[in-house]
């Protein structure tokens, strides 16, 4: 392979310019520049400049985007193996998730993307997702009966809410604030920072910490771009990406603390006395339906067997 000339990689992110993932990729750019002796760096096109995630995934496969920071649910319909990460309650705790994703299982899932034209570089934290509603506290699955809950456009997310007794309502992200305020939907689900930055907390005042999902985000490179690099150059990209994980985590934790403080200051109700057992039992059909494939079932088993520490 002839060495690729010095260049700036194009990287896409839907988040705004000061978001931890965007900052982390800029950090990666600095590291890459240092490692490559100034040959490579990265320009981040933040805030949907290059399109929605499902579109930028395609553009990454075509080689128009070099690096992409993507939500796992968007990858679910492309790379089968990523489905295990979207399963509700697949991770017992943040420690358990980190252990899995930074270990061999995480590597295996990242490597599974190659046949689809993507090179998995790293997983970024995307926090812990819980339900929020205008005024209904959710302590048991029964509390969700009949609630119209907005979910991401993902089969697993739809199945989870339906199994919990809710009425899953896929809806574009941009419409959720108004729909919550107007009562078109009765709730949605997200992590602390998004609950805060989308201002959904203004219209959905009860945050029930069900912690049903810890789905991460993936940092990927276009395989077309990757294959043009020499093994040494590929090594720089990998190392810079891995070094950005901790930076992302540091920024993320600051963000979570900030968001939590802001939301509590706003006087929102935080429901944290929740027994997760009935929720876990209620979502078992999701596992049967979406993780019955032997490869996925095996991944699920190995994730569950991974100890927390």
């Amino acid at each position: 392979v002839p060495a690729t000339e010095a260049r700036t990689f194009r990287s896409a992110d839907i988040h705004p310019t000061d978001y931890p993932t965007v900052e982390a990729v800029r950090y990666m750019s600095d590291r890459l520049e240092a490692l490559s002796g100034g040959e490579f760096d990265i320009r981040v096109y933040y805030g949907r400049q290059l399109g929605e995630e499902r579109d930028t995934v395609e553009q990454t496969v075509f080689g128009a985007i070099d690096i992409n920071r993507i939500n796992i649910p968007v990858l679910n319909n492309v790379v089968t193996e990523t489905n295990v990460l979207s399963l509700p309650f697949i991770f017992r705790s943040v420690e358990h998730r980190d252990k899995v994703l930074r270990g061999p299982i995480g590597r295996e899932i990242l490597d599974a993307m190659a046949p689809y034209g993507l090179v998995g570089l790293a997983f970024y934290d995307s926090g812990v997702r819980s339900f929020y509603t205008p005024d209904t506290a959710i302590r048991t699955p029964e509390d969700m009966t009949g609630l119209r809950i907005r979910v991401q456009n993902s089969d697993v997310a739809v199945a989870m809410v339906e199994d919990l007794g809710g009425n899953a309502t896929p809806m574009e992200f941009g419409q959720v604030y108004e729909a919550l305020r107007n009562g078109t939907i009765d709730g949605a689900e997200n992590n602390w920072p998004s609950y805060s930055s989308t201002r959904h907390f203004e219209v959905a005042r009860v945050y029930s910490l069900t912690q049903h999902s810890m789905v991460p985000e993936a940092l990927v490179m276009s395989k077309l771009t990757w294959d043009k690099l020499t093994p040494e150059q590929q090594g720089w990209v990998r190392q810079a990406a891995e070094e950005s994980i901790d930076e992302m985590r540091r920024l993320w934790d600051l963000r979570v603390a900030d968001a939590r403080e802001r939301i509590i200051a706003a006087g929102n109700t935080i429901v944290d006395d929740i027994d997760k057992t009935p929720f876990i039992e209620a979502v078992q059909p999701v596992y049967e339906k979406h993780a019955s494939d032997p490869v996925l079932a095996d991944l699920v088993r190995r994730i569950q067997e991974t100890p927390d520490d």
Binding site: Q175, E178, A179, R181, N182, G183, T184
Partner: peptide, 10 residues
């Protein structure tokens, strides 16, 4: 209808 939450703009 939009204001009262009966339906989305679409």
């Amino acid at each position: 209808g939009i204001r009262l939450g009966i339906f989305t703009p679409t």
